[in-house]
Write a protein that binds this DNA or RNA. Structure first.
Length: 571
RNA sequence: CGGGGCGUGGCGCAGCCUGGUAGCGCACCACAAUGGGGUUGUGGGGGUCGAGUGUUCGAAUCACUCCGUCCCGACCA
């Protein structure tokens, strides 16, 4: 490509509304342009990288035996009503009506459509397992779009779905997808980690997320350096901790005027934070005897929402109780709550169940109990894994202690089970002639997000340092003083043709700009290989080669430069 | 959804407090010089100051409403 015939717009200044580095660099290098909140245009330079990601994903999906289709992004409400998600889905689902006032949504995902296709299209169990995928635009009306294409409302996703007669068959395909995903992220040249994930409210069994590692990632990942254990913090388990130590202190009720927070309690009464608890009031599940229930975690721990939601007595999605309800049922406000004389159901975290001589609210405003001990002062309530893991917690596989990383979720594979097939009556006769509901897997990859995540992981003070696999161009030719020097102009043209013929994705910077502008732009865009042609060098029989990650450029022969560019292109 | 910030040419910003003819840098156009790290000079073009209503002789500036946008929060009692 000749840059004079391409479109490139770069910016010297960082746009004020971009927070993360990938968003800043994507805007500055002219890869994307914001149209409205959470809506981005992929400009020519950005689109080239996006397409390269797509191509790798497509190749590996095909290799894994998945078949490409393309489904509509606008979907009829009937299908969503059939699956039950028309009502279950919140405001993230963008709904609209056509001229006949028929209801539609813009697809945030395509389980309904693909299941509809399969139930109509597949006629025999002999056609199974079957796997379909598409690379397509999705829309989710995020409550807070941010970080550019990292969390946009409209985004490009590869979504795949597999259908099976048996769980064993699903398991096999799930594993094949796992392996395909590893190949994809290996080829993309990203540092990533596959982690156990929560299977969510949809149900289903196994689920893994693929995270690109980056400090700016929105997700926390717990992993064990001594084993293969890695899990999203939503899912990472903590273990029961055994019996509490014997009581050392007497139970006593203490005036704690104005103490409403753990921090204040620790401060004012010199209580170690590990001897405090947080009592959290949440809405109870439908049909429970009281409208709210209590959950308790240690003062220095965090409640894990996902785990809490899974308790039978807790409403899903998790919702905190309002103060009026708490006062009506407990008689005290938040900040003075505790396990003693608590008139509602209580579930405590494993760590709380192992505490002794601890302090908690007395369920009377401005009063706390200190020296609380289970068994002696009140019966030990039901205990469960309710909190987020922390660095230093034992690994659930018993192989050491956990550490934490930040990650950007770029892929998710999921054994869905029969929920959708059941709801949409997607069944086939098995070899015995017995109708059998199909079981399903689904597998997603955020294509646009991968581009952003790659930049998040690969940048320096001058711009993007792409992995070779997804750089918008592989190499750039920068002719110095092309307009004044026949020699340079001709050499540039010849080299350009030679590289094109060799199949190199090469850019010729034939703009009438000074070298400094050229270099700055090409480094911002992050093209891996740069060859500079000058009268001086050509006279000496050399060209100047520099890889984007090199400190210095090198004067080498033209032939060697061609070999380097061509060689790494193949790699 | 709650809180906060910000909306002034394509981008980055000043001006607003204390009302009085809309400015700077980058980018853009023309000419000249320069020609290996975002050149220099001269001369240009481009803005309903987010929208509406109000106050005022007069509003970018003050007030109110709305819209957009970004950040923080939406368990952490």
């Amino acid at each position: 490509m000749r840059l004079s015939q391409f479109h490139l717009r770069t910016y010297k200044e960082t746009p004020a509304d971009a927070e993360v580095i990938s968003h800043q660099l994507m805007l500055r290098s002219g890869m994307v342009r914001r149209l409205a909140s959470g809506l981005y245009t992929w400009m020519p330079m950005g689109l080239r990288s996006l397409r390269k990601v797509e191509a790798i994903v497509r190749e590996e999906m095909n290799r894994a035996g998945s078949v490409e289709v393309l489904m509509p992004s606008v979907q009829p409400a009937e299908l969503w009503q059939e699956s039950g998600r028309w009502n279950k889905f919140g405001p993230e689902l963008l709904r609209l009506q056509d001229r006949h006032q028929r209801d539609y949504c813009i697809g945030p995902t395509h389980e309904e459509v693909i299941t509809d296709i399969v139930r109509n299209e597949l006629q025999s169990y002999k056609q199974l397992p079957a796997s379909f995928y598409q690379i397509q635009t999705k829309f989710r009306d995020e409550r807070r779009p941010r970080f550019g294409v990292m969390r946009s409302r409209e985004f490009i996703m590869k979504d795949a779905y597999s259908f099976h007669m048996t769980d064993a068959s699903l398991e096999t395909t799930y594993q094949a997808m796992h392996d395909a995903y590893c190949r994809i992220f290996d080829r993309l040249g990203l540092r990533y980690r596959a982690v156990l994930a929560d299977s969510g409210s949809i149900g289903g069994s196994a689920s893994m997320e693929f995270h690109v590692l980056a400090d700016s990632g929105e997700d926390a990942i717990a992993y064990c350096p001594d084993s293969s254990y890695a899990a999203n913090i939503e899912r990472a388990e903590t273990l029961p901790q055994g019996a509490p130590a014997a009581p050392q202190e007497a139970l006593r009720q203490v005036d704690t005027p104005g103490v409403r927070t753990i921090a204040a309690l620790v401060e004012a009464h010199s209580l170690p934070i590990e001897k405090t608890v947080k009592t959290l009031m949440v809405k109870a599940a439908e049909g429970h005897e009281t409208p709210i229930v209590a959950l308790m975690v240690r003062g220095d721990h965090e409640l894990n929402e996902v785990k809490a939601e899974k308790l039978d007595i807790v409403a899903a999605p998790l919702e905190m109780a309002d103060e009026a309800t708490i006062r009506r049922l407990v008689g005290a406000g938040p900040g003075s709550l505790g396990p003693i004389n608590l008139p509602i159901s209580l579930v405590v975290d494993y760590a709380v169940a192992a505490m002794s001589d601890f302090g908690a609210g007395a369920n009377i405003d401005d009063q706390h109990f200190f020296g609380i001990n289970w068994g002696r002062d009140l019966p030990l309530p039901q205990s469960a894994d309710l909190r987020n893991v922390q660095p230093g917690d034992p690994s659930p596989d018993g192989a050491g202690t956990l550490e934490m990383l930040r990650g950007i979720e770029v892929g998710h594979i999921f054994q869905l089970g029969r929920i959708y097939a059941e709801a949409l009556s997607c069944a086939l006769l098995d070899e015995n002639g017995k109708p059998t509901v199909l079981t399903m897997g689904c597998y997603g990859i955020g294509i646009g997000r991968i581009v952003a995540a790659a930049i998040e992981q690969n940048n320096d003070s001058r711009g993007i340092t792409w992995p070779e696999s997804i750089a918008p161009f592989s190499a750039v030719i920068c002719p110095i003083n092309r307009l004044k020097s026949e020699t340079v102009a001709e050499a540039a043209e010849a080299l350009y043709q030679q590289l094109l013929d060799a199949g190199v994705d090469v850019l010729l910077d034939d703009r009438p700009v000074r070298p400094g502008v050229m270099f700055a732009d090409m480094e911002l865009i992050g093209i891996p290989h740069r060859i500079v042609l000058s009268e001086r060098g050509l006279a000496a029989g050399t060209v100047e080669y520099r890889h984007r990650s090199d400190e210095q450029s090198q004067d080498i022969s033209l032939a060697e430069a061609v070999a380097r560019v061509g060689g790494s292109h193949e790699a």
